[in-house]
Design a protein around this nucleic acid. Sequence first.
RNA 1: GGACAGGUGGCCGAGCGGUUGAAGGCGCACGCCUGGAAAGCGUGUAAUGGUGAAAGCCAUUCGCGGGUUCGAAUCCCGCCCUGUCCGCCA
Length: 424
Amino acid sequence: MHDLKTIREDADRLREAMRRRGALATYGPAIDEAEALDRDRRRMIQAVEDKKAQRNATTQIVGRKKKAGEDASADMELARGLGEEIAAFEAQLGPTESRLTELLLGIPNIPLPDVPEGDETYNVVVRTWGTPRAADGLKPHWEVGAALGLLDLERGAKIAGSGFVVYRGLGARMIRSFMNAMLDLHTGEFGYEETWVPVLVNRASMIGTGQLPKFEDDMYALRDEELFLIPTAEVPVTNLYRDEIVAGESLPMALCAYSPCFRREAGSAGKDTRGVLRVHEFDKVELVRYCRPEDGEAQLQLLLGHAEAVLQRLGLPYRVVLLAAGDLGFGSAKTYDLEVFAPGVGKWLEVSSCSVFTDFQARRANIRFRPAPGEKPRHVYTLNGSGLAFPRIFAAILEHYQQADGSVAVPEALRAWLGVDRLG
RNA sequence: GGACAGGUGGCCGAGCGGUUGAAGGCGCACGCCUGGAAAGCGUGUAAUGGUGAAAGCCAUUCGCGGGUUCGAAUCCCGCCCUGUCCGCCA
């Protein structure tokens, strides 16, 4: 969410940001309307506060006269009249403020200056690591997984629906090993605090990180209670400090969590539908950081490095992509995608999206820090990234480590967890 | 799910419907004291919005939302959360 001050003093910067996202036509009208509503709002506030000041003064007089045993009926009548005027002004102010909030909640974040302008064709490959395997003769992961008894997509579809996966035997054990290996790495070597969080959260949390109100159709929700299934652990973990003021010395803060993630994937029918590349429920380990505004860029690079480390330990070739403004998520100011190469399907798979949200989420979730004792609270910067998403790592391993005899070699880093060095 | 108790500032904790934005304490900041510290003493210490160059002034906020009233932290209703007991249960 943007500060009202941005609308008031910097609306053109906001328009320029939307233009860089290629979305000025979409959001321009909202910015225009917000500008007008802000002016209306301030005018009404001045009027209503003026009346309130008058009423407060009158009410004081009533109190004093009553205490002194004098007649106060004239002042009481005056105050009652003022009260009616106040009610009338407030009846106008209420809708103005809710509309303004609604608009503010629906405008995406401003990309940082070093984010390339334009749509996804302007994404930049920043670096690559490892050498992608030639695709010839390699099978896609769903064939390998089924042949080795690691994956049971048919029964997943039967018990839940298409887009739900059953892992079996060593396949299931692989998922568990991802959780252990990644959490151990991030907590043991990179200093993250391990958390275990609810996968059902309330509306305020979903607004805090930016899933609501705009993307409600993409979220699973309960029928009888106002609870939503999280699309990522970013939601509960970032909201941990919602409506709090944290001590300046506690920053930067680093938290990680394993969680299942639930996505309706409304409107994405037909894209990556085979195998486990796009499913309604999957697991991942998420990294979340809070920091001071001046540390945002350095913290993003740090976070990115932590996510990359997982791929390096697994020996999976990948590339780092800086997203162009038009490809940026709603709340992000700058994002690096990590894409691993899956030679069986011949594609780069996004396995992590590392972003800095500047104060966009912190303002929505009201997460602040006190820079120094006695100083005014400021909003923190929030960051997050997957470290990493399991199904695509599963797919990448089955494809990248495929052997000529149909078996799959187990990456060194997972052998201790799996207890074998070869699948099949 | 039922009964009772409770939700007040960074934290703890008082608070008769009318100078209570809110006593007191802790914490924190500054000063005095000290060779230096601790202790002690003194002073200060909420957020948000509006206005203003600034100092300041005004408004709002005592879980959230409504209501009663000239006036609500204080009274009434609904909801949320916490605690205790009961029920249920992995």
